[in-house]
Design a protein around this nucleic acid. Structure first.
Ligand SMILES: [Mn+2]
Ligand SMILES: [Mn+2]
Ligand SMILES: [Mn+2]
Ligand SMILES: [Mn+2]
Lengths: 220, 220
DNA sequence: AAAATAATTTAGACTTGTCTAAAAATTTTA
DNA sequence: TAAAATTTTTAGACAAGTCTAAATTATTTT
């Protein structure tokens, strides 16, 4: 039994956990959920009581396997609903996130299972993020931050890290959507900007600000 | 801005209102929502404050046009989701109601609109209940309670009034689903039971208990 | 038309989730 | 390493929604 508020906290803690194995700080959770540090402390105690996180006063939390399973099940639902909204209801990729934030809390594993089948067992959501499987396993797929790439060559855009509508609309205008292929032709050492070129010969510049929010895989 | 709790109260009041133009009593709402009379009084005051109902102390409430519009919009969503769950996700008709109770509170008119289009603008839900249109108009369709029918003859089952899984499973076992056609061949004056016969010659008895929860239209 | 019964409202309390302001602990700075 | 700055926790309060028990009001019975 988790409330949707608890689910949102667990999701935030899970996302802040991935990538670094340090504790997640109260202030980071507060920032991520746009809430006060005091509220976070209260909720952390509750989640700790339920063995969803390990809490050490003044030193943040670590999510437990139990908490992670809940988080991954919500993330699975979120991403499946995003696929539904985009593939079936024809929403644009910058419109699906907010609706999925509501739909993900409808609590039925049977619903999730049937939705998955109806959508044809998709592996990625409209933003290129992998959909955790029923057991909560995430098939991460050798994707790297474009900003970390050091070799020129052909890449395919596999996902984004910033899901805000304004960023997604910016990308779409530039021709950058998941699945887009391009070649890095120039990398600037000073400002970490790069020039890429699409198969249709169109060429654009990408700033560090943007490239650190783009996930790519090497192509061919 | 209505909370999902307010929405549930408005739905209950709306349903208790249709059919009789008397005020809806506190105890009726409490019974319908399985809550205490004291809680109902509290919420009624809040809805009255918001001009969703007209409240006269000790004499129940009447839903306003404003409150009715909210109720109908939730009922519209509820029934559309039921169609989705049955037609697309292949749930059975006795499984869709509880899930729809959750999905109906996802607040987006755009979502409702697109879901409607995706489903092919259905006019009735899996239980034969009419789906209110965007303007909150219900196209009620000359259906009568089977228990009120006095003429023998051919009828088509158009809906049910009891949505409980146990009742729906009972009906299905007997061959009674929306769209089923049958002929009333016998009506008993004493216990108000009737005998009906299907096109495949199978014949069954129906008690008053059951017939007062079945909606039918005359056929041919 | 009282008295008895039933329905409704009020009073007061509890839970969940939130906040601000003050206190305590940690980290940074000098 | 002691003072200053920052972060975190605690204390106390509030809103929404709920409950039980007591007080009101309405209805039914006699
Ligand atoms: Mn999303
Ligand atoms: Mn996504
Ligand atoms: Mn229903
Ligand atoms: Mn229905």
């Amino acid at each position: 039994m988790t409330t949707s508020t608890e689910e949102n906290y667990l999701k935030a803690i899970y996302h802040l956990s991935t990538g670094n194995q340090n504790s997640v700080l109260t202030s980071a959770i507060a920032g991520s959920l746009s809430t006060s540090a005091a509220s976070v402390t209260d909720m952390i105690k509750k989640l700790s009581e339920k063995n969803m996180v390990e809490y050490e006063r003044y030193h943040g939390v670590r999510i437990t396997r139990k908490g992670e399973k809940v988080a991954l099940s919500i993330i699975r639902r979120h991403r499946l609903w995003e696929v539904f909204l985009m593939d079936k209801l024809k929403f644009k990729w910058d419109e699906v996130h907010d609706l999925a934030e509501e739909l993900e809390h409808v609590s039925s594993d049977e619903l999730t299972k049937r939705l998955d089948a109806f959508l044809g067992f998709p592996k990625f959501d409209p933003h290129g993020d992998p959909i955790p499987d029923t057991n909560g396993k995430v098939h991460s797929n050798g994707q790297e931050l474009l900003s970390e790439i050091t070799k020129k060559g052909k890449y395919i855009l596999s996902g984004v890290n910033d899901h805000s509508p304004s960023f997604l609309q910016y990308l779409e205008k530039k021709g950058l959507i998941p699945g887009s292929t391009f070649t890095i032709v120039e990398m600037d050492e000073f400002d970490n900007s790069m020039q890429i070129i699409f198969s249709n010969k169109k060429s654009i510049f990408i700033s560090k600000e943007v490239s650190k929010n783009l996930l790519v895989r090497s192509h061919e």
